[in-house]
Design a binder for these strands. Sequence first.
DNA 1: TTGTTGGTTCACCATATGGTGAATTATAAG
DNA 2: CTTATAATTCACCATATGGTGAACCAACAA
Lengths: 113, 113
Amino acid sequence: MVNQQPLDGIFHALADPTRRAVVHRLLKGAAPVTQLAGPFDMGLPAFLKHLAVLEGAGLIRSEKRGRVRTCHIEADRLGAAETWLSDQRAIWQGRADRLADFIESQTDQEHEI
Amino acid sequence: MVNQQPLDGIFHALADPTRRAVVHRLLKGAAPVTQLAGPFDMGLPAFLKHLAVLEGAGLIRSEKRGRVRTCHIEADRLGAAETWLSDQRAIWQGRADRLADFIESQTDQEHEI
DNA sequence: TTGTTGGTTCACCATATGGTGAATTATAAG
DNA sequence: CTTATAATTCACCATATGGTGAACCAACAA
């Protein structure tokens, strides 16, 4: 996989329930690693990998103060994904000939009857 | 990976530039497999796996008539992802204390000065 | 019937992903 | 100084992912 467009990382990061839950949690406020990891049934090393994926995708940011690392959400990166999706919807909605697909699917069904 | 929530599959499917391009293409109208595969620099077997991922996620549908399989977009599935994202944005925007994050980050910087 | 075309299946491979337990480091707290 | 806590690193493992080439099947065309 040579390609590494930003959307690749963002969508990949969001394709995991643990990571989505972390995003969801962080939207309500920053939190340190161990506290974030609390609800999940996995070891710290595994959880850190999830955080690394999120941070690599730019969805979160983290700073270490003393021995505690605090994670923050980077909300505008979510916007990048949202934008791509709404662009696609715009294309879909803008189609003049969407009816063709419907008719086609009906024709298919007739053959099955 | 035991968990298989619908969003897992949808986001995973969208985390690949080839698959996003296929979605983009199909939004403009249905197309047969070989024609869809045309622009991409990979063999048919590899491309079929991408289609399988998209179909598994419910993002596309396909029917075979004669020897040609025609693929259609399933646009409402995109909506599921869009909805999750806009829900998250709602949480973010609804936060009363977003300022706290900003102040915290400023405090961090002061210590570095 | 003989190609040719559109898809499919198969066996295989390299790398990525998501997890583990154990050892390690660094900062706080007693 | 000693110990507990927060996080990190390391070696390792099973499975998933994304690709290949070659063989194959089914349908249309000549």
